[in-house]
């Protein structure tokens, strides 16, 4: 299992949680004040509420429904309805491997010893949703069957592809630090229109 991009560092600063997904796995991706990134199952074990609606407090992610706080290991360490209680270790959220590199937040749903994708010094520009499967987006560039990163000759860009559903891919776009971000941004808008078969 390889690393897949789920967002850009600049869009998820410390103290922020966002919803994301990899195929059937819905994720809450958040950044602790320490700067470390986490990708968890998007479900509080208490009453099933989406943790991506929650809030970061200290180095914990809290559920918006009852304020249960989960530490960076995913274990519940505070239940506001019972402030004196030490929650049992069994109350925890499934967590996934998550790290930030090159301004991109990477997730692996399974333990992996694979290296992070090589970005060749390119820097993040923006993320764009494309209403196609990741395979179909990659095929447009002649990339392999299960790509996570496609190197594209246009503007010397890298597309880190996040397969959200069978009909939705998030393309995280990186380009040379010397490239004009507006030109790259316009190019990816055109690409999206071409792939989706709609007028730009």
């Amino acid at each position: 299992m390889s690393w897949i991009a789920v967002g850009l560092k600049k869009d998820v600063p410390p103290g922020i949680v966002i919803p994301s997904r990899l195929a059937d796995t819905e994720l809450a991706v958040w950044c602790a004040p320490s700067g470390s990134y986490h990708a968890w199952s998007d479900r509080c074990p208490h009453r099933g509420m989406r943790l991506s609606h929650g809030f970061v407090r200290g180095n914990t992610l809290a559920c918006i429904y009852h304020g249960w706080q989960y530490n960076e290991a995913g274990s519940c360490d505070y239940i506001p309805a019972h402030p004196k209680l030490t929650p049992p270790d069994t109350i925890c959220v499934p967590t996934y491997s998550c790290t930030e590199a090159g301004g991109v937040i990477w997730v692996s749903l399974e333990a992996t010893d694979q290296p992070l994708p090589e970005l060749g010094g390119r820097v993040p520009v923006r993320s764009v949703p494309i209403a196609l499967s990741a395979e179909n987006v990659a095929a447009h560039f002649g990339a392999g069957s299960a790509p996570t990163v496609a190197v594209v000759s246009d503007h010397d860009t890298v597309l880190a592809l996040q397969p959200c559903t069978d009909t939705l891919t998030m393309a995280h776009v990186l380009a040379s630090p010397d490239a004009d971000p507006k030109a790259v941004s316009r190019w990816v808008e055109d690409l999206r229109a071409t792939l989706e078969g709609v007028p730009a």
Partner: peptide, 12 residues
């Protein structure tokens, strides 16, 4: 969910 196991109740 009506069966225990899928969600975690407390005294509250």
């Amino acid at each position: 969910p009506l069966d225990p196991g899928m969600e975690v109740p407390t005294q509250a």
